[in-house]
Amino acid sequence: MAFAPFPVRPVTPQERTFRIEAGQFSYTPSELSVNPGDTITIELVSTDVVHGLYVDGYDISVEADPGQTATLTFLADKPGSFRFRCNVTCGAMHPFMIGKLSVGQNEWFYRSIGLSIIATIGSIGYLMFPRLLPLITAH
């Protein structure tokens, strides 16, 4: 369950454009969902001070001056869930100005759930084993 290959739904890559407004200390929208292989264009609009947008895992970024639009285009070729965050010091809560980009399924999350289920069943099984053993041996 935790390590089995994930079923992949075939999808035709698209070009997708998102307009993201950045203001102290959040993005709107703050969650993006795309398919692997999509070409993504982010139009970053800052509504107050200078803000940036850095995408974890892709290691790409863009900065927007107040009232200006800056554009970032990239190929979403890595599946998974990635945080994007402001990379220009923009005020007190700057380190926590964070959004989320989902490229296809968040495989790692589902695999982690699988591991947690295995851990839980294993722990309960370990607990029950001494009680079940006489029943098993009786048969």
Binding site: F25, S26, Y27, S30, M93, F96, K100
Partner: peptide, 15 residues
């Protein structure tokens, strides 16, 4: 949820 999540309203409320 508040500090590392993508929900700006929560961060505003906490700050």
């Amino acid at each position: 949820g508040v500090l590392l999540g993508p929900w700006g309203a929560l961060k505003d409320a906490a700050y």
